[in-house]
Design a protein around this nucleic acid. Structure first.
Lengths: 208, 208
DNA sequence: ACCTGAACACCGTTCAAGT
DNA sequence: ACCTGAACACCGTTCAAGT
């Protein structure tokens, strides 16, 4: 009654960790509790995350910040550099069809998706304060924003500064909403979204 | 060799906690380590924060988010309602002289001070994600922003939405900076401040 | 390769006791 | 009121061992 090929994987561990975080908060996530949820001894997790909880946190941060657009698992926190040689070197965006919609629509679309994902995993939000894991998804986002802002007429360092402002506003708005959501006069989800769009459009107006 | 009237106080505890957080990160703050730093047994802290670490975290969050403008100790996380009767009931802002500068200057002034404070205690930033303690300082800020935006010509719910957007951008920008500050191509402090102002002015332009 | 089980150092908190 | 000291349940992690 000893071997237990539980079919553990990094993704399964991350998903279960997120589930615990959603239910009991970040402070409620312990390696032992995570092991229990996975029906495994806590120490088994170290085989998939040899560097321990810190590495698991990094992987969770990478998972949360990867947009749904990138379908493949972004669970590894180190850049998987062993798959580069076989690929034909192309802009990752070139694989999908060209998005011909106006630049501001593309930008707003991204912002909505990003915000939704952060809200979905809001229990893990504080992990992102000291972590900005680089993933295929984060690279694609960077490219998307740069292309859109260039198309909007921005040049030179205005592009970088604009991108920073947009990013800042997105995570700031989610933090602001999460921060106040337990108050008695907190706006409901619809009003929160309306406020998000209000500020977002103002920022776009001011930048372009 | 037993009694130790260490002159412990909530403020001293918070300050020492912030010092530990600055040096070893939020995860490096333990009650036992905090006790050592204060030259006291860890359990002595519970006399000043009977609800334990969570209450200490709330007090730290309140301390960090209180702007320097409010000079009196904002260390208590419950609103100190026992000092109300003796005071003559006045708008707290009325005690200081009227600020006659243009609305956007007052707003930018506040934003700079708020940002500076968050950056100074950036190690405690993640505490703010799930905490928005109400303090005299937070009430004063709210009043300041509302007055300024009204003066800018905003009306109705535009005022509330504008205030939210400004707040969101401020904390978002600090989170964004802290999040990326360990990267090799991270902008220096001056460039970070320039980017903050760039987005801030854009947002003000777009809102007004 | 993948998981277990015992062990170690550390943690938050309670509680009775000291002054 | 303010602090100590022992105790309890829990934690992250190491390490040797099993399959």
């Amino acid at each position: 009654m000893s071997r237990n090929y539980a079919g553990l994987s990094r993704e399964r561990i991350i998903l279960e960790a997120l589930h615990i975080i959603a239910g009991r908060g970040l402070g409620g996530l312990s390696m032992r509790r995570l092991g229990d949820a996975l029906e495994v001894e806590a120490m088994a997790i170290y085989h998939h995350f040899p560097l321990g909880k810190e590495q698991l946190f990094n992987a969770i941060a990478a998972y949360v910040t990867s947009t749904a657009a990138t379908s493949t698992a972004p669970a590894d926190e180190e850049v998987a550099d062993e798959n580069a040689p076989e690929e034909d070197e192309q802009d990752p965006q070139a694989r999908e069809e060209e998005d011909t919609r106006p630049w501001d629509v593309r930008l707003t679309d991204w912002a909505d998706a990003y915000r939704a994902r952060l809200l979905e995993y809001s229990g893990a939000l504080s992990l992102l304060v000291h972590r900005a894991p680089r993933t295929p998804s984060s690279d694609a986002t960077r490219a998307l924003i740069h292309r859109a802002l260039t198309e909007a007429g921005l040049t030179g360092e205005d592009v970088e500064r604009g991108a920073d402002a947009l990013h800042s506003y997105c995570v700031g708005a989610v933090v602001h909403q999460v921060r106040h959501q337990d108050e008695e006069d907190a706006p409901d989800a619809a009003e929160a979204e309306a406020r998000f769009h209000h500020g977002w459009r103002a920022l776009l107006r001011g930048l372009a």
